[in-house]
Simulated scan of single mutants.
Amino acid sequence: MGFIKERVAYLKGLAEGMKINTETNEGKLLSSIIDVLDDMALAIDDIEEVQEQLGEQIDDLDEDLAEVEKIVFDCEDDDEDDDILAEVECPHCGEIIELEEDMLDEDAESFECPHCGKDVVVEWDCDCDDCCDHDEDDDE
């Protein structure tokens, strides 16, 4: 928007070329309007400069954020193993089953093997007294 400064400079030159008398009320008004336009043009130039600097900083932050996202989301893939409760060998097909919480139903005594599709019986061997509901079911 450097053209605004050029246009204001043109108006200044035009006013001087017309030899507007700044002693009259109209001359004072036109001179003041041109001064205000000049100040506005300078302010706009300053704003454009700051905006350009901020744009560069945003681009830098965007690049840094992309690196952080890459690190966070690459590491997050490793955390998927946290959902695995245990690894169990299927008695039917011999494949290793990564047992997850959503595979187990509290009331069911078995779950389906994802490899062969047969039911695998769950035997609850728990030595704890207060962390599981299975001992309470046995007492009833």
Rank of each mutant, 00 (worst) to 15 (best):
99 L>R: 06
28 K>N: 08
102 D>K: 14
76 E>C: 03
76 E>A: 08
76 E>V: 05
112 E>D: 04
97 I>S: 00
17 G>Y: 12
44 I>A: 03
66 A>M: 10
87 E>L: 07
43 A>V: 08
102 D>C: 06
117 G>V: 00
74 D>Q: 12
136 E>S: 11
51 Q>N: 13
100 E>P: 02
76 E>K: 07
116 C>P: 06
114 P>W: 09
36 V>I: 13
101 E>N: 11
34 I>S: 02
81 D>R: 15
62 D>L: 09
25 N>K: 08
14 L>C: 04
74 D>M: 12
128 C>P: 02
83 D>P: 05
67 E>F: 03
134 H>M: 15
75 C>H: 07
34 I>D: 01
44 I>M: 11
108 A>K: 13
19 K>H: 06
42 L>H: 13
65 L>R: 05
85 L>T: 09
113 C>W: 00
129 D>P: 10
125 D>E: 11
30 L>F: 13
40 M>R: 14
115 H>Q: 08
51 Q>W: 04
106 E>I: 06
134 H>E: 14
129 D>R: 03
138 D>Y: 10
97 I>R: 00
97 I>E: 00
28 K>Y: 01
7 R>Q: 05
20 I>T: 07
55 G>W: 01
44 I>H: 11
13 G>A: 02
119 D>F: 06
98 E>W: 15
7 R>W: 08
133 D>M: 12
125 D>H: 02
27 G>M: 01
24 T>I: 14
88 V>Y: 03
137 D>H: 11
89 E>L: 06
56 E>Y: 04
107 D>T: 08
50 V>C: 02
58 I>Y: 10
14 L>Q: 02
91 P>Q: 14
70 K>I: 01
55 G>M: 04
49 E>G: 01
12 K>F: 01
12 K>S: 01
41 A>Q: 07
1 M>R: 12
111 F>C: 03
38 D>A: 13
85 L>G: 07
133 D>K: 10
132 C>A: 09
93 C>W: 00
118 K>D: 07
108 A>Q: 03
90 C>R: 02
91 P>Y: 13
19 K>E: 12
57 Q>K: 09
107 D>G: 02
13 G>R: 08
8 V>M: 07
44 I>C: 00
96 I>D: 03
115 H>L: 05
95 E>W: 01
36 V>L: 08
58 I>E: 07
4 I>E: 05
116 C>K: 01
71 I>L: 12
22 T>R: 11
72 V>K: 05
32 S>P: 01
133 D>P: 14
102 D>G: 14
27 G>N: 01
86 A>D: 13
81 D>H: 02
137 D>A: 15
106 E>P: 03
79 D>E: 14
13 G>F: 05
63 E>L: 12
35 D>E: 15
75 C>V: 07
106 E>D: 11
133 D>N: 15
4 I>G: 00
60 D>S: 09
30 L>Q: 03
35 D>I: 10
